[in-house]
């Protein structure tokens, strides 16, 4: 119970700070909107196939995650609150709170990206349930990997654009599976049975990544 309470406290703290400044949400939304508009302008009038649609959608989500979620631990360092957190809350609870916060941010990104993308590129969604499922499940794995790497770059002296470099090679298995699953959702003929192995992989990947991240986080968080 104390474990849940600690994670909840971290989550609440982050949500409250976010409510005050709205920095991360605004930046993520602006990034998603501008990159989607860029894609729409670059593609022009041409109709884009299902495979390309799901690939572009996920690349936008991946880039937004790598840019918007990197701040979660850097901000603690900048505010000088790291020591306070280390003293008051065990590491795994800090990680879980941050993970859930990042996951919620990603869900907002998913939602905006999906709606705007569907409007701009005339996306026809055949299987809503499958698409939502793959977006949510994919975001779990994405949030897990990004949260650990955000903690890693917070310890680096040169924080700049390190997160995308570290993140992208690790996420290729996830990207390949979610692109296939979302494509199956856009392409009516394929259906759930074709996408099931991909969903299993996404779930397994998310589980393994989060487990490894919780274990490894202790070594990053404490000196």
């Amino acid at each position: 119970m104390t474990w849940i309470r600690g994670s909840w406290a971290i989550l609440q703290k982050d949500l409250r700070l976010e409510m005050r400044s709205r920095y991360a949400v605004n930046m993520l939304l602006m990034f998603v909107l501008s990159s989607l508009l860029l894609i729409a302008f670059a593609v022009g009038q041409e109709s884009v196939g299902e495979r390309m649609q799901s690939a572009l959608l996920w690349i936008v989500i991946l880039f937004s995650a790598s840019i918007g979620l990197g701040r979660s631990f850097v901000a603690e360092e900048e505010r000088g609150t790291v020591l306070l957190l280390q003293l008051n809350v065990p590491g795994s609870q800090v990680f879980t709170g941050k993970l859930i916060f990042n996951f919620l941010l990603l869900l907002a990104v998913d939602l905006v990206a999906l709606v705007v993308f569907a409007l701009l590129l005339n996306m026809v969604i055949e299987d809503w349930l499958l698409l939502l499922f793959s977006l949510v499940l994919g975001s779990v794995g994405l949030a897990g990997a990004t949260t650990l790497l955000a903690a890693i770059i917070a310890r680096a002296s040169n924080k700049g654009p390190l997160l995308p470099v570290l993140l992208f090679p690790l996420l290729v298995p996830l990207l390949l599976s979610v692109v296939r699953a979302s494509r199956a959702a856009l392409d009516g003929g394929l259906g759930l049975s074709r996408a099931l192995p991909d969903l299993q992989i996404i779930g397994l990947f998310s589980g393994v990544v989060i487990t490894a991240a919780v274990v490894l986080f202790e070594y990053v968080w404490y000196d």
Partner: peptide, 17 residues
Amino acid sequence: RIAAVYNLFAATTTPFL
């Protein structure tokens, strides 16, 4: 320590490939 964390984290995701 941090480089070791990244190396091991990468080693847990690559088998999925």
